[in-house]
Structure formats: C-alpha cells, structure tokens
Amino acid sequence: MANPIIEVKNYSYKYDGSDVIVLKDLSFTINEGDFVGIVGCNKAGKSTLCKSLVGILPFVAGGSWSGEIIVDGKSLNETRGSGVTDVIGIVFQDAESQFTQQTVEDEIAFAMCNFGYSRELMIERVKFAAEACGLSSMYDRSPYHLSGGQQQRLAVASILALQPRVIILDESTSQLDPIGRDEVFRLVRELHRQGKTIIMVDHNIEMLAEYADKILVLHEGELVAYDESHKVFTNKELLNRHSVRVPQVTDAALGLKETYTGNSGTPITLKEAEEYFAGLKGRGDQHE
C-alpha cells in the first residue's frame, strides 16, 4: 500500500539576494519505503531540493518560495519547517566538517542531547545506531581518526539515532574512495531493507541503477523525469539531452542494439548485463 510520505506540489524556490529561480514548479510524490535516486548535472538544484524537503530552505536559511511541501501529512508552510527532523534525517557531503564532538560515541549522542532525550534512551540508541552502521568497535575514537567511509557512516549513525523514517543523503559518497563508497551504499541498502525511505543524490549512476527503485532527474531546476530506475536509465536520449550519462552496461547494450535488433530488456545493472550479453553471444556466430 503506497503511503505518500513526501509530497511536493508546484514548489519553486529562489535564494535570498538572487534573481535566479533555482527550483521551478516541481511536483512529485515519494512513498514510504521507496529508494529514490536524484541525478542531474551540476547546479541542477539537487542540493537545494534536499534542503527544501527538510524545511531548511526557506524557513531557516531564508529565500523566496511558492508552492507547498507536505511531509508526513503536514504542510511545511504551516509548521514553518519545525518537526521535520522527527521524520527526515539528512546527511551531507563533507562529513568531517559536521562533527563537533570528541568521540564517536558523543557524536552519535549529540543530536539526541539537543532534542532532550533521556540518558537511558540515548545509551540504547547509541548502541543501536553504532551497530547498524558498523561502528561498535570505535566508540572512543576521535571522529577525525576515521577513514572517509567510516566518517560518512558516523554521519548516518548520528541521525539514525533519532530513528527518522526518511533518510536523505546529499552526495555523501562524492568524496570517498571506492571502498568507502561501497560501505555507504551497503549501509543504505540495509536501512532500506529495514523499511526506511531513502533519498540519495549521487553521481554514481551504476550504484543507483543497482539500488534505487525510482530515479528523479533534475535539470536547471526542472523535473525532467521521475519514474522507475529501469525506465529512466534506458532512456539514453532524454538523459544525454540533460547532461546525465547512462550506466555503462546500458550504454554498451544500447550500442549493440543498433546491430542486434529485437532483443528485449536493456540491462542497467551488471547482473542484468551478464544475462543480456550471454544471450547475445550465440547470435554473433549466426550473424556471419
């Protein structure tokens, strides 16, 4: 049963002091339990959109807007952005500059302290969040002595402790090496499996193709596509027109399609590609 947890209705936004409208008349709905990947070239408005979903823009950081964003049935226009952090947690790109505490344990507890949780509950949640993010052996380490992947996991753990239903990751893997990036995606997939709604802005098309249910494409503030991953990623012409590339396996398969017509099911992940190309292998001999 699809339960809409975030509804965006004709939302437009421009920054304070600027005349450029960064988000133009966006309308879409995210259901609880979805894994939505947001893609788009630079300056498409992805970060602005993430911050709008949590009510930071415009209610805390300023700006001008029209339209409405409804989170868990409550319109942000009425609540002025407060109360969103009970439902949505957001993690940003540069984890290291978001840390304020001396140890991993205190960092996870920081948000809970700000919201007035009792000590018993905090201890429980720190344990829960650290285990979920694979940080149980690092309670007394300094956040600055962690690897990039561990730091991002710590950033996720800090908001996971509040047990939000939706987690937004704004380019969290951009500064990570491949190992760190895999750690984060594995964690995110596990959280999604446990029922969390995940919204992930990322440039890593291949990983999103593997994990995300739906893809939202933004270009210059406009919603260009919002559909199942498969439909979006195989639409090479649309994506290229908006400066987004397709998964490498899709590109290869589409290229081959020009020669070998009539094959169904263009792959977007490595696993699908294996089956697809295996199917083509025999055909090559026949062609001669």
Partner: peptide
C-alpha cells in the same frame, strides 16, 4: 550551520547530557 540545525542545535527543548 545547516547540518547543526538538522541535529537540533536550535531546538527549544531542554538539552540533556549524555
């Protein structure tokens, strides 16, 4: 500043100590 805001730095409730 935005990250701190989302972690409740400005929230009005009484802060507790871990």
């Amino acid at each position: 500043a935005i990250a701190m805001e989302t972690k409740g730095f400005n929230s009005e409730c009484k802060k507790t100590l871990y």
